[in-house]
Design a protein around this nucleic acid. Structure first.
Lengths: 354, 354
DNA sequence: CTGAAAGCGCTTACAG
DNA sequence: CTGAAAGCGCTTACAG
């Protein structure tokens, strides 16, 4: 309550108590106005060197650091972007985040993670308003209309591998083409009966990959049967077990992602099936793990980290554009598609084996 | 500029322009005070049902969503916690984030990611003040004094696998014990000359793991030579190559993390060295990948996701405590140590092979 | 170059 | 139960 040493710097008291010094404390100690303190910290206006020095000294003495929340409220800019993901499982997401972080930190932006869990879902999105400057949303299992309804109106947005949202920039993967390439490759290697382990039926990527696989199979004149998986290893294991047990006839397996392919691969090996001689296997995503399993997995490669980085870059540009021309609302840019390429490894053969 | 239809709801205009409706817009449309709007949205005070209905209707009509930034400024609570990590490379971090997210989203907290990159470093930490309620910091390569100097004073903090910070809660891994167990196991399996691929010399975990390995080796009376790696696969590959080439004499390799162990394992296999018959291999962390490589990797297992979840849980409790007794400053709790256990798989043998 | 004042969008004692 | 007002910690026209 009472200060025992009023002679020196009474303003230092709050800092000592654990609370942080504010811009007012600095202004008082430096003997200037808060506006001036703000100016030396933001360094845009010209300030006399003498004032600059006094303010900096006072700030140092008080251990002053500007309050990011207050700044963002008055500047209408948070410096953070929201990343909305369906899950955090597996290497796919760590690669994606790595790419996003690379780009974001280069631009001085933070990444606020929001995972769309089963229960706690889309409704959280709107709450992001005022907390981020923009959103990169990956929600392949969400109905686009539902998603649109829940998007906060303020922030800019880029959609990644979702059912396309109109009025926004969509970054799409050419799932159809990638899957078709994989199936064509299996057929060229001699496969006659391919099993496709698809992703969940409500997943947008999964639907496209399945369609691509089916198109390529019928073009090549080979049989393709589909078994629905959930993108996790275990659903691949199950299919591998069935193929090994001959409950399911197949000389090749194409899984909609690598983890399921790896599950199948492991199961086949466990049962003594020779890969690729008896059954070939291919996946999708080309996660780092793909080349480490034995035999190394053939996969449809997308540069996941680069994709994440691109999404963030686009978003940052959109945010900047909005800042310059605030009246125009959301800028509609052409969609962009990411073209995967087939990475052939040991679980398939390049040449025909007929 | 001019409104063409003043008869209806002029307040709807800003929303239509892309800008968001504010609490004032809602208040005006509902014909009540902003305080009341705030009350119905926060639902703590008693409000008459009639008012409640009017406000909700107005809000719905305007598509009003509270501005998170403004709320957090006036409530001194952001609902986000900062996660400070050295890197985002590999499965270790995706597992860690998964665990953190699990706990955080259960508690309604967001996760703001901050990666400590080479250049853009510790100085960013202080800037987190006002943007998060607390921090979980993992910075094994940072000098604890430097770290302490850069920590923002406001937010609570939990340190994860760092050189211990006093005055704060530290969640430590028993690196020494884990490494010792691995080396003891290799020795029991018959190893006489073990190569330890350590982490970077300035890394806290790496130092402890190395010390544990050395202690166990000398206790078992086996030779241990140390080669410094960088926690990435390539530095393991290099050692594997040398061991295969007999440039380096070894009948066992213990790496300070799994990625280096896998690099060594792959190199040995490529050169036709039998694992574990000729050279045994063990790693540390037990990332999901460990059991998928062939042969499956023996590793010192820590439940990475659980560790992340615990860090967040502790932090959340600390934040709550601070909120109840704001005057007490940072609460000092006893440190907590995570005890790893050895996961024996195919790259080592359980029994002696003398 | 500098300061006083308004404002960012909310919440919350304080009166009524 | 409800409203007017102050305040959260900053920034930024607006005057000087």
């Amino acid at each position: 309550m009472s200060s025992d040493r009023t002679d020196l710097v009474p303003a230092a008291v709050p800092a000592a108590r654990g609370a942080h010094a504010t811009i007012h404390d600095v202004a008082r100690v430096a003997g200037v106005s808060v506006a001036s303190v703000s100016r030396v910290f933001n360094g845009r206006d010209h300030v006399r060197a003498a004032m600059c020095a006094r303010v900096e000294e006072a700030a140092a003495q008080l251990g002053y650091v500007p309050h990011a929340g207050a700044r963002s409220l008055s500047m209408a800019r948070t410096g953070a972007i929201g990343v909305v993901l369906p899950d955090l499982h597996g290497e796919f997401y760590s690669e994606l985040l790595r790419g996003m972080d690379r780009e974001a930190s280069m631009r001085g932006l933070g990444l606020l993670l929001t995972v769309l869990h089963e229960g706690r879902g889309v409704d959280t999105l709107a709450g992001l308003r005022g907390q981020v400057d923009g959103l990169v949303v990956m929600a392949p299992e969400l109905d686009p209309a539902v998603l649109a309804r829940h998007m906060p109106r303020g922030p800019a947005a880029v959609f990644l591998a979702c059912a396309p949202q109109d009025g926004s920039l969509n970054l799409r993967i050419d799932n159809h083409g990638g899957a078709a390439a994989a199936v064509a490759h299996l057929a060229a290697g001699g496969a006659k009966r391919i099993v496709h382990i698809s992703g969940p039926g409500n997943n947008f990527d999964a639907q496209e990959r399945r369609a691509g696989a089916e198109a390529a199979a019928s073009a090549a004149g080979v049989a393709l049967s589909v078994i629905e998986g959930d993108f996790h290893e275990a659903s691949g294991t199950k299919v591998g077990d069935r193929v090994a047990a001959r409950t399911l006839q197949a000389d090749a397996i194409f899984a909609a992602n690598d983890m399921m392919a790896i599950g199948a691969l492991m199961a086949l090996k466990r049962h003594g099936i020779a890969v690729p001689e008896q059954v070939a296997v291919a996946g999708f995503d080309d996660i780092p793990l793909a080349r480490l399993v034995n035999p190394a997995l053939t996969s449809v490669a997308i540069d996941i980290a680069a994709m994440g980085a691109r999404a963030v870059a686009h978003l940052a540009e959109q945010i900047a554009a909005k800042r310059e021309r605030p009246l125009e609302g959301r800028v509609t840019t052409a969609d962009e598609v990411i073209v995967p390429h087939l990475m052939v490894r040991e679980t398939t053969r390049e040449t025909g084996r007929g």
